[in-house]
Write a protein that binds this DNA or RNA. Structure first.
Length: 363
DNA sequence: AACACGTGGAT
DNA sequence: TATCCAAGTGT
């Protein structure tokens, strides 16, 4: 077929046959591909949202050991749930996971087996509903994630902005139209399209077109545009926030407090901190405003943490204090600190706190 | 529609 | 060091 005769429709129509063959020979062996249990597939899909496979694997195994069933997850204490999610990011995923677990447990532990039914559940959007409906139930539903978007835009040499919801919707319709018909081929097709995007038609750098089962009819490759696709709108610059973090030590304990229920790192534990980069005098005033008496200033520790949309520049003070502080302060020993979910943003301070508490002995 | 929402690996 | 951005969803 000449390049001029390749249209979006017939390019995508040519995809399934070679893609399925390629996948059957080249698929990675991933734990969630070894099951059709909707619970296990669902947990994997939530963890994989905006998160790399390599980062998920360990969390996935630990999570399923802790919560082998949807009922166990529904009944989990918040602290245990968040501790298991600690470091994985996007923590509302874990809270929505439990909300959905409770809904499903109320229905006798049965997940909805349709795209529309799944879509109603908290944390399950367009992509995830399609992924679960197909992988767990063999339903003929497209699952269009970032991988699929990239594959389709390159195959069809389409320069539309993939951040535009209209473009995503159109791609979903195009993919839906060429999906195979049997349950087994449907499962493989969705997995295979994502696998191709993750391993061959990959982001960051040139695609490995020589290994691609679609190389003969990929318009992006034939026209040399593949590496520049997909087109994505410019992202907003991050704002910078200055914080002063306090490692308040008191007889083998360190002060922690719970973050607000909404917003960044909602409901996770943090070391008390204040806005701004404070010098020792200003920091001392903050400590006293908490009703604490600074006894000995020990060290200063700076750290930077970059989130997607904000950047924290932190200055930390470690100090021995006397007093209890505000009512929402919790004084944690080494063991208790290890049981609380403290986000990676505070990693340098968590490490320092563990060092200080680890060697501490009563008397 | 546009923005909030984490983290860490790759380049 | 800087930038990208990943198996997206909720508001």
């Amino acid at each position: 077929m000449s390049q001029e005769n390749l249209t979006t429709e017939n390019i995508l129509q040519r995809l399934p046959a070679p893609l399925l063959d390629w996948y059957r020979a080249n698929a990675r062996d991933l734990p969630w591909r070894r099951t059709r249990d909707p619970y296990r597939i669902w947990v994997s899909e939530i963890m994989l949202q905006q998160t790399r496979v390599a980062a998920v694997l360990g969390y996935y195994a630990r999570f399923l050991t802790a919560f082998p069933t949807v009922e166990a997850l529904a009944a989990a204490p918040e602290e245990r749930l968040m501790k298991l999610w600690e470091g994985l990011g996007y923590y509302s995923r874990a809270r929505n996971l439990q909300k959905t677990a409770r809904i499903v447990a109320e229905q006798g532990g049965r997940f909805p087996d349709t795209y529309a039914g799944l879509l109603k559940l908290p944390g399950i959007g367009d992509y995830t509903a399609g992924a679960i409906a197909s992988a767990a139930f063999g339903q003929r539903e497209a699952a269009v994630d970032g991988n699929v978007l990239r594959v389709v835009m390159r195959l069809t040499d389409c320069h539309d902005d993939i951040a535009d919801p209209k473009v995503k919707k159109a791609v979903r319709a195009q993919v839906q139209a060429v999906m195979p018909e049997t349950a087994e081929d449907i499962r493989v097709f969705n997995q295979a399209t994502m696998e191709l995007g993750a391993t061959v038609c990959a982001p960051n750098g040139p695609p490995r077109c020589l290994e691609c089962p679609a190389r003969d009819f990929c318009l992006g490759r034939l026209r040399g545009t593949a590496e520049d696709l997909p087109v994505k709108g410019a992202k907003k610059p991050r704002r910078v926030e200055e914080r002063t973090v306090f490692l308040l030590l008191r007889q083998g304990q360190v002060a922690l407090r719970k973050r607000p229920k909404t917003g960044l790192l909602a409901g996770l534990w943090e070391f008390p901190n204040a806005e701004g980069t404070l010098d020792e005098a200003a920091a001392s005033a903050v400590v006293e405003s908490w009703g604490l008496t600074p006894k000995q200033w020990e060290s200063r520790l700076t750290a930077k943490h970059i989130f997607t949309h904000v950047e924290w520049h932190m200055t930390g003070y470690t100090l021995e204090v006397a007093g209890d502080g505000p009512a929402d302060f919790v004084w944690a020993g080494a063991e208790e600190l290890g049981e609380r979910a403290v986000p990676s943003a505070f990693a340098r301070y968590s490490e320092e706190a563990k060092r200080r508490l680890g060697g501490w002995k009563e008397d």
